[in-house]
Lab assay of single mutants.
Amino acid sequence: KELVSALYDYQEKSPREVTMKKGDILTLLNSTNKDWWKVEVNGRQGFVPAAYVKKL
């Protein structure tokens, strides 16, 4: 599985998104959309802005 690192804090703005803190390591589930990537963090799945994470 592919991992990404959070470059910035992000506070979810809808139920489809997830909150992350800078430095968090997230499991990348889907990166086909260039703007929003689906990740899993702390057992929750949702979307984060692609520009806020980088692949490890």
Rank of each mutant, 00 (worst) to 15 (best):
K1G: 12
K1W: 13
E2D: 11
E2F: 13
L3W: 14
S5K: 15
S5I: 15
A6L: 02
A6G: 03
A6Q: 01
L7E: 07
Y8V: 12
Y8W: 12
Y8E: 11
Y8I: 10
D9L: 02
Y10H: 04
Q11R: 09
Q11Y: 14
Q11A: 13
Q11I: 15
E12I: 06
K13G: 09
S14K: 07
S14H: 12
S14F: 07
P15V: 10
R16W: 15
R16T: 12
R16H: 13
E17A: 06
E17W: 03
E17T: 09
V18P: 01
V18T: 06
V18A: 05
V18K: 01
T19S: 15
T19W: 04
M20L: 09
K21L: 08
K22R: 12
K22A: 13
K22H: 07
G23F: 05
G23E: 03
D24V: 05
D24E: 11
D24P: 00
D24A: 07
D24K: 02
I25Q: 06
L26W: 02
T27K: 11
L28N: 00
L28Q: 00
L28T: 02
L28F: 03
L29F: 03
L29Q: 03
S31Q: 11
S31L: 05
S31H: 09
T32N: 12
N33Y: 09
N33P: 05
N33S: 10
K34D: 12
K34Q: 11
K34Y: 08
K34E: 12
D35I: 14
D35N: 13
W36R: 03
W36V: 03
W36M: 06
W36G: 00
W37T: 04
W37H: 03
K38P: 02
K38M: 15
V39W: 00
V39L: 03
E40K: 05
E40G: 05
E40Y: 06
E40D: 08
V41C: 10
V41T: 11
V41Y: 11
V41E: 03
V41W: 07
V41L: 15
V41D: 04
N42Y: 08
N42E: 10
G43A: 05
G43K: 05
G43C: 06
G43T: 05
G43W: 03
G43N: 07
R44K: 13
R44C: 05
R44I: 09
R44F: 07
Q45F: 08
Q45T: 14
G46M: 05
G46W: 03
G46V: 04
G46R: 02
G46H: 02
F47M: 08
F47V: 07
F47I: 07
V48R: 00
V48L: 02
P49S: 02
A50T: 05
A50D: 02
A51Q: 12
A51F: 10
V53T: 04
V53D: 02
V53H: 00
K54Y: 10
K54I: 14
K55F: 12
K55A: 11
L56S: 08
L56V: 13
L56Q: 08
